[in-house]
């Protein structure tokens, strides 16, 4: 038990204490950095009812959900596909795993700035290349078109993190006993059936881990969106997410910025914590044992 003390102390100081202070701060009105009177859930009511933050909360939450769904559909599906290909063709496996995981090493802020340069309609090489091959009509203001901005965000994010599902699924595929796959093949299972009946059920623990990690990552995203679209989430706020909304409330809010942003932070925490728990439970139920 004594072994736990240093760790527990650090954890309390670094994680639990800030969480508790945010909880406490959210119940007070603030005048700059001076704490004012206790207002109970006043700050929560304020951010949930005052225009325009009340409507921005809903829009930002929707964008987070779309971002999560899009990332699951694109990044994690392609990641699984790539893991399967590498599983079947072990030659060059290490090389490709390293290659796809390289963007991990770059800060999301830098990734964001790089891609905003690449996609710039004035000086960016992406549109210049499209024009060079006579695909001018394909050249778009990628980050300036409300319908395109969020898909572009999902793709850029996938570009950076695709190595994650690739590695986790790769390891999980390696853990499936070959005898099971061979037995199914002898019984006449086609590749499609083999995947859905044998491999996928055994991959469920990995799917669960990746889903929960993706969920937390997608709902906490800030730096990449900030670099691609600024504090307001691009034109028309089409990439506005909860992280940016929190940032605007905390650093561009009025004199009660600390109170209101703490309330936003607590709402985000409760949402992410609650849904992550729920996801974990749901996915755990679908796992099968060998």
């Amino acid at each position: 038990m004594a072994f736990c003390l240093p760790g527990a102390g650090l954890y309390s100081a670094m994680v639990i204490y800030p969480l508790l202070t945010a909880l406490v701060y959210g119940f007070f009105a603030w005048e700059g950095t001076t704490r004012g009177p206790f207002v109970g859930v006043g700050n929560y009511l304020e951010v949930l009812t005052r225009y325009p933050i009340s409507s921005e909360l809903g829009a930002a939450l929707l964008h987070n959900v779309l971002f999560f769904v899009g990332t699951m559909a694109i990044q994690n599906t392609i990641g699984l596909g790539l893991a399967l290909i590498l599983h079947r063709n072990p030659r060059g496996k290490r090389f490709f795993q390293t290659l796809f995981s390289m963007p991990f090493l770059i800060s999301p802020l830098i990734v964001g700035y790089l891609w905003s340069l690449l996609l710039s309609p004035t000086f960016g090489p992406v549109n210049a290349a499209l024009k060079a091959v006579s695909l001018e009509s394909w050249a778009q203001p990628w980050l300036g078109e409300p319908d395109l901005a969020l898909p572009v965000l999902i793709l850029v994010n996938a570009w950076q993190w695709i190595g994650g599902p690739l590695l986790i699924f790769g390891a999980a595929l390696g853990g499936i006993p070959q005898s099971l796959e061979e037995a199914a093949q002898i019984d006449g299972a086609r590749p499609w059936t083999l995947f859905w009946r044998i491999r996928f059920p055994l991959l469920m623990p990995a799917v669960g881990v990746i889903t929960v990690l993706t969920f937390i990552g997608c709902f906490n995203v800030f730096d990449l969106v900030y670099a691609l679209g600024g504090t307001s989430g691009g034109p028309g706020g089409s990439m506005d997410v909860l992280g940016l909304l929190y940032y605007r409330t905390a650093f561009r809010g009025g004199s009660n910025a600390i109170g209101e942003s703490s309330a936003v932070a607590m709402l985000m925490f409760v949402l992410i914590f609650g849904v992550a728990l729920l996801l974990e439970r749901l996915l755990r139920r679908r796992e099968v044992q060998l």
Partner: peptide, 21 residues
């Protein structure tokens, strides 16, 4: 404006002017 101004950032616009474009 630049035809795709909706995708043009502040720094891009400044560079357009400073470079004489």
């Amino acid at each position: 404006w630049e035809p795709q101004a909706t995708g043009v950032g502040y720094d891009d616009a400044k560079a357009q002017f400073a470079s004489g474009k």
